[in-house]
Design a protein around this nucleic acid. Structure first.
Length: 425
RNA sequence: GGAGGGAUGGCAGAGCGGUAAUGCAGCGGAUUGCUAAUCCGUCUACCCGAUAGGGUAGCGGGGGUUCGAAUCCCCCUCCCUCCGCCA
């Protein structure tokens, strides 16, 4: 949620930020609404002031044994007027909040301006694509060859966009998750969390999925939502809290299933397990002091990249353009891993600084030392990393001519020492 | 699912129709060789105001009664305890 006071003071910057996201200017309409709200409020408060004063006079008059009927009549008139003003104020405020809740965050000044992903800017690459002396296969070909990646059975159980892994591949998925959690908790200072994966409306409003993106989510019959990412429960840990400044930054990680309806992705990436309704992801969330969020984004991205480095995977890191960024972000880095079977880079992690946008929505604040009042914390999230996609990347990059898959060294301790999948036992 | 209890400022905790006690913590200031102690101030949000300052609201949320509601009434949400069911 944006700060209406900021919009009041910076209408031009606000409109140009909207423009960079491909939206029409809105400051005029918003400020008119804001003015309407404040006028009604100011007047209602003046009436209330009179009313309070008169009510005290009633008490005083009665204490002296005098008749207060006349004063009481005057209060009655004021009350009616106040009711009208308050109704006007509430209506304007509700409308203002509704509009504000649907406006995306302001991109940071150093984010490249552009319409879509074509304007994203590559920042760096790590490693190089592996060389093959045969035609590398895609992950689903490899998986089906191994007999351990079964889309048919999954479809029978659940329909399209589900998969059933078994045997060594199932274990590889588990190994990847454990490896990532151990890295982030053991070396990167994150606290491991096992959060609920069913949440209430408020939590999804806080991180920005609601009210605008309800169609991307699954909902249970009794009104819970399935999380599309652990960003939701992890960030909402501080919702409504006054956090201790000395306790910032707070860093949380969790390995959870994520559920997405993929409503807007009909026909996209239908083969294989690149885009599923359910997938595992290790999430990295940070709650920081406002002065530290920029540096924290760099740190977090490095934590995610470290996973790929240890797995020996080639990747590139890009900064998303204004037109490609998510709703709540001020700045986002995507990490794209090389998939030799597809011969292309695919997103495997997305790290964002949301500034105070989410904190405002969930009212997460701290009291700065030596300052009056309170401030909103900053929140960041990032995948560290998507486990299903990491599985794909390992399979395609570590495949051999016979269809077997070499287990990256970092994962072998988690695979019972095993070094190849598909080779004779 | 059944039966009770509860929700008040950062925390603890009173108030149960006359307009938010008190304690602790934090922060600011005063005082004092140092430390400590003591004293004073300090809740939050919003509105008006160039500043100084002034005002309004907030006792889980929303309605209602009343001149006046944290206190009374109605609806809702959440938390806790016990029973039942259950991984």
């Amino acid at each position: 949620m944006l700060d209406i006071k900021w919009i009041r003071d910076n209408p031009a910057a606000f409109d140009s930020a909207l423009g960079s996201r491909g939206m029409e200017p809105m400051s005029g309409a918003l400020l008119a609404l804001d003015a309407r709200r404040r006028e009604a409020q100011t007047e209602a408060q003046a009436v209330q002031e009179d009313r309070n004063r008169l009510s005290k006079e009633v008490g005083a008059a009665k204490a002296r044994g005098e008749d207060a009927a006349e004063i009481i009549a005057r209060v009655g008139q004021l009350k009616e007027r106040q009711g009208e003003l308050e109704a006007a104020q509430k209506a304007a405020e509700a409308e203002l909040n509704e509009v504000l809740a649907g406006i995306p965050n302001i991109p940071a000044a150093d984010v490249p301006v552009g319409e879509d992903e074509a304007a994203n800017v590559e920042l760096r690459r790590h490693g190089a694509p592996p060389a093959f002396d045969f035609e590398p296969k895609q992950h689903f070909e490899l998986g089906e060859l191994l007999g351990q990646m079964d889309f048919e059975t999954a479809a029978r159980l659940s329909g399209a966009r589900f998969v059933l892994l078994s045997g060594a591949l199932a274990r590889l998925e588990r190994a990847l998750g454990q490896f990532m959690l151990d890295l982030h908790t053991g070396e990167h200072g994150y606290t491991e969390v096992q959060p609920p994966v069913l949440v209430r409306d408020d939590a999804l409003f806080g991180t920005g999925q609601l009210p605008k993106f309800a169609e991307d989510l699954y909902r249970t019959g009794d009104g819970y939502w399935l999380i599309p990412t652990a960003e939701v429960p992890l960030t909402n840990i501080v919702a409504g809290q006054m956090v201790d400044e000395g306790y910032l930054p707070r860093r949380y990680t969790a390995l959870t299933p994520c559920f997405r309806s993929e409503a807007g992705a009909a026909g996209k990436d239908t083969r294989g397990m690149l885009r599923q309704h359910q997938f595992d992801k290790v999430e990295l969330v940070s709650i920081t002091h406002p002065d530290e969020s920029e540096a924290e984004l760099e740190r977090k991205t490095a934590c995610a990249e470290e996973v790929l480095k240890r797995l020996g995977l080639h990747y590139r890191t890009v900064v998303l353009s204004t037109g490609d960024m998510g709703f709540s972000a001020t700045k986002t880095y995507d990490i794209e891993v090389w998939l030799p079977g597809q011969g292309t880079y695919r997103e495997i992690s997305s790290c964002s600084n949301c500034g105070d946008f989410q904190a405002r929505r969930m009212n997460a604040r701290f009291k700065p030392a030596g300052e009056k009042g309170t401030r909103f914390v900053h929140t960041l999230n990032g995948s560290g990393i998507a486990v299903g996609r990491a599985l794909i990347a390992v399979m395609e990059n570590y495949q051999q001519a016979d269809g077997s898959i070499v287990v990256p060294e970092a994962l072998r301790p988690y695979m019972g020492g095993r070094d190849v999948i598909g080779a004779p036992e």
